[in-house]
Nucleic acid binder design. Structure first.
Lengths: 259, 259
DNA sequence: GCGATTATGGTCGCATTCGATCGGAGGTCA
DNA sequence: TGACCTCCGATCGAATGCGACCATAATCGC
């Protein structure tokens, strides 16, 4: 069994890491070793842990604090990996949008690309918890229904228990979901428990679930469980998934689409 | 040791490239090398990377920024012509915001000005159905709760029956409302029935109702009844209201504040 | 107290990054 | 058009960082 909640890391060291990364918004592993009197292996472990919690972002040679990036919600914080792929994935997802449908758009940069492609689809109803997706469609486009609830600044999405008040009232034909992590064992994962909560509710009530992720998410496991692979009907990704992973998906009757 | 060989991360370099290219619309590889303290090969690699992301366009000898940011004309238009009166009204409304409060922000340009003033109030919870108010506070500021429901494009607010699902769950200390029309006979009025519906629900559950309108709304009557004057506790406006109207308001125990 | 689980540190093979070199393409000027 | 020069992309090598594995120490449960 996978032990998700191993939180017995030295809390003091984690706090000092957080502090160091809040002060300067980036730090090198080497420096952190000296400062914390710890080995590189330990520092790396802690950093990956913090990354799973969504508090920092790892980069080669160190880490950067993710807080410094939320000031510009319009600017994509994670552009360091692939956007051509994301656009292609979004384009492939269009095949699953039928006129007259009611669809749900989740947060995440890949789904955001899909939102951009829907600006000319007027015979459509879009439900979303993503502020940025809503912005794309605020001027013109389909009928737009926003999910209500508390705004999570990091992802610019509306999450948490309050979202349930609207989600239980509506049922969408197809839900287009993003995900921070995607693995055979842990399924869909994301950093924030509230966000995971909302994702589960959406996937429960959707007639069809389409997951849009680029291949860099393969094997990643983030903090919170956001859904089982069994709940996914279609997975759209770029062509770089490992064969083993694709096989394990098709065995679960998930249709894998390569954009 | 000279700080010549200061290590830097790839993402930081990308950010600095973006910044340099946003400032001047074009930059040469040679200059970027000096600025980033990197070799031409590295700069070229980063530039091609950014080009793949679609953020810039390579040219011989350097790169130019491709301004893909087509701001919605809807937003620019109304936000730029925020009159002095509206700003002053918003400023006066700040007196009714106490630390720790939960407040509601309605749509409308005057209330939007108030949202702008709240970006440094972190000890506060803001509930709103206004997409533009949410945007003002999306990057930083108070805890932000969005009301869910159908987006009305004209006002960029969330309105209609679905909003009730969240509104009945929450109770705010003070609701700051806008209005299209304000008259002794018809009270508060607005153009859209759905919008009126939502306004009524908010005013019902708010402990205190503060209406923010400039004096041009006096005597105007719009299509849908959105609330009775008796439900209003405070009216903040500029100093151009007619004496008769002010008297009729104070007779109804409404506190009139001139900004 | 003892076994089991967990945290930490060291080592090794591998991946990533960066800079240098080189052949060739593209731009410039007569 | 052709000569000349600059710049570009591809490839390679060096350096560094990284994850995986294992050993050891600490801690917890029984």
């Amino acid at each position: 069994m996978v032990t998700l909640n191993q939180k017995q890391f030295a809390p003091e060291r984690l706090d000092r890491l957080r502090a160091a990364l809040r002060q300067n918004r980036m730090a090198r592993v080497e420096d952190l070793c000296r400062e914390l009197n710890a080995s590189p292996a330990t520092v790396r472990r802690d950093l990956t842990h913090l990354e799973q919690l969504g508090e920092i972002q790892r980069v080669h040679g160190g880490a950067v604090s993710v807080d410094s990036k939320i000031e510009e919600p319009l600017f994509d914080a994670k552009t360091s990996i692939a956007s051509k792929e994301k656009q292609q994935i979004a384009k492939a997802a269009l095949d699953f949008v039928k006129p007259g449908d009611t669809i749900y758009l989740d947060g995440g940069s890949t789904v955001l690309e899909l939102a951009r492609l829907l600006r000319d689809h007027t015979n459509l109803t879009v439900v979303t918890n993503s502020l940025r997706a809503a912005l794309e469609l605020a001027g013109r486009g389909p009928r737009l229904i926003l999910v209500g609830g508390e705004l999570r600044r990091l992802s610019q999405t509306v999450v948490g228990p309050l979202t349930e008040n609207i989600l239980r009232e509506i049922h969408v034909d197809t839900a287009f979901m993003g995900s921070m992590g995607l693995s055979s064992d842990s399924g869909l994962t994301t950093t924030d428990p509230n966000e995971a909560f909302t994702k589960k509710r959406v996937m429960d009530s959707a007639r069809q679930v389409v997951v849009l992720v680029d291949s860099s998410k393969e094997g990643k496991v983030a903090f919170s469980h956001a859904g089982k692979l069994e709940d996914v009907d279609v997975l759209i990704t770029d062509g770089k998934l490992s064969k083993d992973f694709v096989r394990s998906l098709t065995e679960k009757k998930i249709k894998v689409v390569k954009a």
